[in-house]
Simulated assay, not measured.
Amino acid sequence: MDAKEAKKQILFAVPIILTNIFYNLIPTVSIMFTGHLGELELASSTLAQSWATVTGYSFMIGLSGALETLCGQGFGAKMYNMLGIYLQASCIVSFIFSIAISLLWWYTEPILILLHQNPNIAKQSAIYMRFLIPGIFAYGILQNILRFFQTQSVVLPIVLFSLLPLLLHIAFTNLLVHHTSLGFQGAALATSLTFWFSVLILVVYVCFAKTFKRTWTGLSFTTFSYVFTNFNLALYSASMLCLEYWAFEILVILAGIMPNSEETTSLIAMCVYTEAIAFMVTYGMSAAARY
């Protein structure tokens, strides 16, 4: 074993592992708060979160995969100014798909009923999903910026920039759920607002940090020339990643058609969330190998 190379990969992988765990815990914290409101609220939020992962979050992570190829090639070829252009093109693609996903999320209730979910849970899940809609736009941008960081081996700052939103999210969710009239809906709204806060601090860092003075030179109309290139790569990347996520999240949908769906949906979802956190370890190690 090459000990030097192993150490290098571990030091690169650990920050990515922590970053992904922290970001994954943000929606999970919201669900934990809804669990204190009742079984129906817990089952509805877990089903909504699984539906959001299947139709939105996993797709956004997959779309950002195009930057692994484009930014990786640009950085390796020392075409540093292209990284910022690729980032902007990827954000445009993510924004377009976010609009389509938002329309799908708005009509969550009839879709879940069509999938033979409990009508009461489907109705509450649809309410939860509508408050998650603003967050899907932020989540797409967030994933793109993370790839922008990682392809330049800038991984330590994003640990802090993921931990800070998580800590604020805990306090913010508690405020909206227990100290406002929003209650159940407040947990979903907190998730959306936290994702936007995460994007904001990352954007500020990219614009002002000396680390990116070569790779981020500001907004450019040249970006639009690379949207289609990004679009082609992003679709293939999203397709592969979605199949991986769907294999697990489909279990939550299946749990919804079992007897005592309020209990089974929550139990299966919690198992899937636990598995997802464990998956972040192997994801981080694979990222080290890619970059």
Rank of each mutant, 00 (worst) to 15 (best):
G284M: 10
S153A: 13
V14W: 09
G72C: 07
S45V: 14
T265H: 06
Q152N: 03
W246H: 03
V206W: 08
E262Q: 08
E68R: 04
S162V: 06
C71A: 14
Q9L: 14
F197Q: 01
F137C: 09
T274L: 15
S237M: 07
L132V: 06
T46G: 07
Y107R: 13
F137T: 10
I113M: 08
R147I: 14
I158D: 01
L40R: 07
A13D: 05
T217Y: 05
A234C: 06
E244K: 03
V29E: 02
S237I: 03
I268R: 03
P165R: 12
I17D: 00
I158Q: 07
V155P: 06
I111L: 11
F279C: 04
E249V: 13
F231E: 03
K123H: 14
E263S: 12
E68H: 07
V177R: 00
Y57C: 10
R130C: 07
H178C: 09
A278D: 00
S162M: 05
W105H: 08
G65P: 02
F12H: 07
S225A: 03
L70G: 02
T34Y: 03
V93A: 05
E41T: 09
S239Y: 09
Y86A: 00
N260G: 04
M240K: 06
F197V: 08
A287M: 15
C207V: 11
T173K: 12
K210G: 03
F131M: 13
K210E: 01
L168E: 01
L70T: 03
I10G: 02
A188V: 12
M60C: 05
C271A: 09
G38C: 06
G183Q: 12
A209W: 00
F95L: 15
I101F: 06
A3C: 05
A276W: 14
F195Q: 12
